[in-house]
């Protein structure tokens, strides 16, 4: 085992942080270190936190951190914020809400930019979680970058999914549209100190009738309701572990990570070949002149790609 992998397994912050950075930047060799860690990882409870912008995900994560630390757990946080499509840069502001835990040696908080990934995650989320897991974290919180219309990938990246909503964001309809009502294990109505929680709770309970999930109210600002929420999270873990659920979710997470990598790899290969190969260029030329149509062109390209990919 490499020295870096060994140091990460001992829980060394700096070694872990550097690997995370190299993974995110796709530095050659970084994946080889992750490979050494992968087999022994998979012990941490990964909890996804999703919900519309400003509903209080980070503040809630901070409160959950506090609750977990009181129980002596080691905790990792991965917080994703969107990358600007124009500049490729990002301001990552989730950490602001959790800074009181910055010096706690048993807490590791990492901010990630989505870097073009859809679904509120970053392509590096899975890898970052694996590193935290290898450090021996008991609990890993994954905060997504809001929920958009482009699918809610966090469902495949966590054992337990919290969907956070808040009154006054006008997000009741939006939440249903974005499909979050299918993915939550626990629904949290946050900002319990504000008016409008009761109608939101009622319509949630109505919409989720008969589904195997919980609905709770919290106030992340004061911490009210966080105790019961933390208990529900622990119970969800126990329930998963008592049956086949844990195994199933873990398999789903591995599969999601695999698919993400596969898709990215295919896209890269594809765009390279579309640029380089004569027959494929010709096809695109034909398409531009309407000598063929997009569907026919795509089918022919696919046949071509697979045929030659096998050689």
């Amino acid at each position: 085992m490499s020295d870096q992998a060994r140091r990460i397994k001992r829980g060394e912050v700096r070694a872990a942080a550097r690997l995370m950075r190299d993974l995110d930047d796709r530095v050659p060799g970084a994946q080889a270190v992750l490979r050494e860690l992968y087999a022994a990882a998979g012990r941490a409870h990964v909890v996804g936190i999703t919900g519309p912008a400003g509903c209080g995900k980070s503040t809630l994560a901070d409160q959950l951190l506090e609750a977990a630390r009181k129980e002596g757990q080691k905790v990792g946080v991965v917080a994703v914020d969107p990358t600007s499509h124009i500049s490729g840069g990002a301001v990552l502001g989730d950490r602001v809400r959790m800074q009181r835990h910055a010096r706690d040696p048993r807490v590791f908080i990492r901010s990630l930019a989505s870097r073009g990934s859809l679904g509120g995650l970053s392509r590096s989320v899975f890898d970052t979680v694996t590193v935290l897991d290898s450090m021996g974290k008991d609990l890993i919180l994954v905060e997504t970058a809001g929920v958009g219309q482009d699918g809610v990938k966090v469902a495949g990246a966590a054992h337990t999914v919290l969907v956070v909503l808040a009154p006054g964001l006008g997000d009741e309809v939006q939440a249903i549209k974005a499909g979050v009502l299918e993915i939550g294990d626990i629904y949290v109505v946050n900002k319990g100190d504000r008016s409008g929680c009761e109608p939101l709770l009622r319509s949630l309970r109505w919409a989720l009738e008969g589904k195997p999930c919980e609905v709770v109210k919290t106030c992340a600002r004061t911490g009210a309701g966080v105790g019961p929420l933390f208990k529900l999270i622990a119970e969800h873990r126990s329930a998963l572990q008592a049956g086949a659920g844990w195994q199933e979710r873990s398999r789903g997470m591995a599969r999601a990570a695999f698919l993400e990598r596969l898709e990215a790899g295919m896209k890269e290969t594809l765009s390279g070949r579309l640029r380089r190969e004569k027959s494929l260029q010709k096809l695109q030329e034909d398409l531009a002149c309407r000598r063929t149509d997009p569907d026919t062109a795509a089918r022919r390209a696919l046949r071509e790609l697979i045929k030659r990919g096998q050689r």
Binding site: T83, S84, I86, S87, G88, G89, A90, V91, L92, G93, R95, V96, Q99, A102, R103, S111, A113
Partner: peptide, 17 residues
């Protein structure tokens, strides 16, 4: 950010630690 960098903002009243 507009120059393409990733900026982690940590807020006010931070201790050096």
């Amino acid at each position: 950010r507009d120059a393409g960098m990733e900026v982690i903002y940590t807020g006010i009243r931070q201790t050096p630690e």
